[in-house]
Design a protein around this nucleic acid. Structure first.
Lengths: 197, 197
DNA sequence: GCCCCAGGCTAACAACAGCTAGCCGCAACG
DNA sequence: CGTTGCGGCTAGCTGTTGTTAGCCTGGGGC
């Protein structure tokens, strides 16, 4: 009865995940209830269990597809050229592009790591370390080839990564900058950081 | 009875706040229970209410003293010279120093903003905007005086701030770098970002 | 036209967490 | 020494949340 009748909603798993993503990003994982998620897809909380095993599952799915995307984009960027300078620039562009375009995923990905169950968290942490290493290796090679000049590879790498991550916090679509503009400009900034400007 | 007898613990408010800080940073505000905090100071959860009005109060106290410190340090740094370059450099050093030395406060400060009650959150958000503006103004002036050359004041400012914030995530005392080393190096990095190297 | 089951719903449970109530011991002070 | 109150403690209330159980409906396949 009530409104459920007319809202013959075909709720697919993807819709639920999308709703969960938005809520996790907005209120945080713990503060989001299954009822919240249900409401966002016009369903009562318990009905979600017809599509999803648990709330934790939603978080895991969000974070895993997210890191997978990032890693793939990174590989593509780095594989697209042999010039370290271009590799770093493109890797940064991909990094920033992701953190702008998928800002919710990125946001949840960094903020809710600790609410992942033991196993999933370990796996995610490893992936993220891989990703970081990818950048560090680039900076190192640039230095070795005499193309970059940095005070500390580690600090420079962290700086590049962190400023990209920051984009996911303040970016809003349709404001001053487009995703591409931001990607390019951050590419420039990264070049400055490694002393290759 | 039990162990409580011998552990004649004099629990002061400051100890409780310190314990809460550590737990909030480690597990997050929502995931931390009053019992957790009590356990950290050798007391049962409910006993905390003899010293503290609520869990929320603990968060508010942590975040307010934290932002107050940052703003004070910032003012001191900027007020110590008239040269924009030095001002920015010192502001960055102060920024990074805080995020390293008080990494838990900094971490909680950014992560738990949303779990602040309505009023406190608005106040904190305003303070944080002030802080950001402080940096933006410096970058703007540097550009106006022809000392800096940046693609976008806004993006450059965000980058500087975000890379400093990142320090609070990975910094550990007694590892590769000391707080001062990091502060100096990040000062250099910021100079590079504004094109004043 | 009948049956089946995907996918909704409500009820309810169990675990908790924040917080209050109310008790008690002991150290300090007069 | 008596008393007072700080600062513990336990019991317990209340509200919430993830999740399960079990019911019901309507549309698609035979």
């Amino acid at each position: 009865m009530s409104t459920a009748g007319l809202a013959r909603t075909r709720v697919r798993r993807a819709d639920i995940v999308a709703a969960a993503l938005e809520l996790f990003a907005d209120k945080g994982y713990l503060a989001t209830t299954m009822d919240d998620i249900g409401r966002a897809v016009n369903v009562r909380g318990p009905s979600l269990y017809k599509h999803v095993a648990s709330k934790q599952d939603l978080l895991v799915e969000i974070m895993e597809t997210s890191i997978e995307t990032v890693l793939r984009d990174h590989r593509v960027a780095v594989g697209s050229t042999d010039d370290v300078g271009d590799q770093l620039r493109r890797a940064v562009e991909a990094h920033v592009r992701f953190h702008a375009r998928h800002r919710l995923e990125a946001f949840v990905g960094t903020r809710e790591l600790r609410h992942l169950s033991e196993g999933a968290r370990a796996a995610m942490a490893a992936r993220r370390r891989d990703y970081e290493r990818g950048f560090r290796v680039l900076v190192e090679r640039g230095v070795a080839e005499g193309r970059f000049r940095v005070g500390s590879v580690r600090l420079t790498t962290y700086s590049i990564l962190d400023m990209g991550v920051g984009v996911s916090v303040w970016f809003r679509d349709g404001e001053e900058f487009s995703v591409d503009e931001i990607a390019y400009r951050y590419g420039d900034l990264a070049m400055r950081l490694v002393g290759a400007a």
